[in-house]
Design a binder for these strands. Sequence first.
DNA 1: TTTCCATTTCCTGATT
DNA 2: GAATCAGGAAATGGAA
Length: 274
Amino acid sequence: MSVTPTITIDSLSTTWSPNSYSDVSLVVPGYSSRLWAHESQPQYWSKYQVWEWLQQIMDMHQIDASTVPFQNFDIDGRQLCAMSYQDFVRAAGSVGPILFHSLAELKWSGQYHVEISQLEIKPAELDFSCTFPDASYPPGEIYDASFQPLAPVASPSPSSPDIKRSYSRPHQVKKHNPRGTHLWEFIRDILLNPERNPGLIKWEDRAEGVFRFLKSEAVAQLWGKKKNNSSMTYEKLSRAMRYYYKREILERVDGRRLVYKFGRNARGWRESEK
DNA sequence: TTTCCATTTCCTGATT
DNA sequence: GAATCAGGAAATGGAA
């Protein structure tokens, strides 16, 4: 599905100001320094850049990529910028508000003036019950507790210091996953977005969830980079992978080196789940 | 402060 | 012989 924009962000107005409450850097340390490498303004992004942006937001907020239907964002920057707040909520569920605010901030930072002081969307209209599919998570696997959807764009005043407390988390947002993305999710995301890390891991049998490391040490280093651990090696990474056997997140593939298979408790890798 | 969890680190031995 | 696999044991560090 692609979202058909109804109200443009440009036409929206609200008391919310991207420079006040929704300063993402307050929520995600390091955001500013990483703040979107694209020189161009979002309305000029290609589809690929839109996906890159999405992926980066997922990474920054440690949101499981499988919870956001990327196919809903098979659009270019111009179409993205034409999406309303509700379009984002429709397209990305509880992650929608984060995407909306992030985009709004980008537009502001790019001198892209957004007149949002007249927005009429009420919090009650926002569907924070839209779900992360429970089935997307194995029993005991939980969503990032640190994930806090930004408050809706309407009242109360975003300048209120209590703003982030004034909206409860969606109840579907599961607790835990305290350190962000799990290793198996990291691996899965590489497989699902090979254009981001070409040649590192590849599917051996997509339908069965069998995959093979092509550059095991490179993957380990990438994982180490993510965990801020420069001494990560494939040896260590593979030990962590083997622990997944017991939890049935991975299954053994006997007799084949560097080959693993997703188990019954691994979610989000099947094409039908995307 | 304690407990829990998901690794991380180190190790020995087996297999390819 | 090197790389990888398997799994035990202990350590680590963040979050609740």
